[in-house]
Design a protein around this nucleic acid. Structure first.
Lengths: 281, 281
DNA sequence: GATATTTTTCCGTAATATGGAAAATTGCCG
DNA sequence: CGGCAATTTTCCATATTACGGAAAAATATC
């Protein structure tokens, strides 16, 4: 996996106001799913009536959805219900969007207080994915875009996650690290990295001293789920000239507080989210 | 709401082996959702490549999905992600199918031990909905089908739920009851019903003595979610001739045990379900 | 500034979804 | 027990609708 680390900016024509493309059959199928989701266990004729479609059309769409497990069709009594496949796809939303959603206000406040770029990253497949950010309007801007994938061993966020993970989890991560060198200060061996992680554990926050990008420093702390497993991290980064050791220490305390707040929002009840988020926890 | 209480049996031609109807565009859209669900935050060209579709077709389908909120499209960087609308629909699966799924083995065992019809019902809109059952092969069969809606005041299941609910919840239920009479023994007033509920609270199980159907008796106990709110009930029912007072007492103990087991399966971790079920509790 | 990518729109084509109607079942009622 | 009614499922002629190549638009990259 020798992918680009920096995510590409979007190219091409941006979406215009009037989106021309629309697919009738898909639109109707979504309407059917909405009907099923609110009143489950309906007969074909009820569904067709509720969605204002001919029975034959509704049947054809439902049959297609059933083939893909998005709806169930009880052979015994002919009732249609929402299927497990739909849940599997829908569950991806939580996995991916929940932290960005609950973390947004925290990130923004952190930007206001520090006036440096704030990044929110999630652990995914032994890498980090940037899922949220707030860019400082200082002359020197950050490099990462939403969706960018970053290495564990050369970022403050990655180190904060590994340092707070269980020994088994940490071991699994370390085993897969390739120690790609980004700058002269990038850790090049497990020994070096482990020594750093021990410091991170003590302090509660991780520091990246130009290990990923020359001239840039970052401070990060881990965010946890309800079982105290690290799922991501929040980081503040800026040019080394603005990041004195003193300031790094102060930022460390602040970043820990922000991460703790996100942990609470993520793992606890949160009223700013739609009820589905907390209905089945 | 003067609906039929008994759900209709399915009529019409049963589904044959070879289901003819298939809708290409819908099928392709589902494939796109699957791609997005496993690797979120992709560009159009990546998605199209992964789903083996022309970019223009993928774009048209995604635009339709976006219009219905099933996917998000970040204006800034052009990345596509799964949307909240998809989660809202998918969450309906849990609300509706989780209890039937985890309860199925318990119901079957109960049928084997008692050789009477077992029903699993969920509370929904001040009524009960039959969401699972196992029919005894005794000559006298049960009346209810999957999807049937039953009244709270004239069923053992309904009474077991009201008896174990919080005062506020019970009050709200009682306020909406119409006291429709099904047999001469159906409770006709709040006073009568409340007296019965007091007994149910003491015993832990509810009994229906021919209050819904002449000649039929039933025993039920409530099932709870993780906050100890009743969400449904399991019941055993049979003809009065087979349901002596002694047997009702014995069945009561057994039904409580079954309900407790379902409560544990529903509110706790359960390995027989796919990981999505427990991933975000 | 020029080129290469990527996204978005356009539009001619025909493949594909549509929906009325018939066929196939089964419940229901007398 | 038999016929009627209700419902689901299949079929098929039709033209609506989705398709996808290509152009246009916009931007990152060099």
């Amino acid at each position: 996996m020798e992918d680009q680390i920096i995510a590409p900016r979007r190219r091409g024509r941006p979406a215009s106001a009037a989106d021309g493309g629309e697919v009738q059959s898909l639109d109707r199928a979504i309407a059917l799913l909405r009907v099923l989701a609110e009143a489950d266990g309906m007969s074909l004729s009820d569904i067709a009536k509720r969605a204002d479609l001919p029975a034959s059309t509704a049947h054809r769409l439902l049959a297609t959805l059933q083939k893909r497990q998005l709806v169930n069709h009880d052979q015994e009594n002919g009732l249609w219900t929402v299927g497990l496949g739909l849940f599997r796809i829908g569950a991806a939303y939580l996995r991916i969007r929940k932290l960005p959603d609950v973390g947004r206000p925290v990130i923004r406040r952190l930007l206001h207080e520090t006036e440096e770029t704030v990044n929110l990253a999630m652990f995914d497949g032994n890498e980090l994915v940037v899922v949220g950010q707030a860019e400082g309007h200082a002359p020197v801007r950050a490099f990462f875009r939403l969706g960018a994938r970053l290495p564990l061993h050369a970022t403050a966020a990655g180190k904060s996650i590994m340092a707070s993970a269980s020994p088994a989890f940490r071991g699994a991560c370390l085993a897969q690290i390739r120690y790609e060198a980004f700058t002269v200060r990038t850790h090049r061996s497990e020994r070096e990295l482990m020594d750093d992680l021990a410091l991170v554990s003590e302090r509660g926050y991780a520091v990246d001293h130009e290990e990923h990008t020359a001239g840039m420093r970052a401070v990060a702390a881990a965010i946890f789920n309800e079982w105290r497993e690290p799922i991501g991290a929040v980081s503040v980064s800026g040019p080394s000239v603005r990041m004195s050791d003193d300031r790094v220490t102060r930022l460390g305390r602040r970043v820990i507080a922000a991460a703790d707040q996100m942990t609470r929002l993520y793992s606890g009840a949160d009223e700013s989210l739609p009820p589905e988020f907390v209905a089945y926890r």
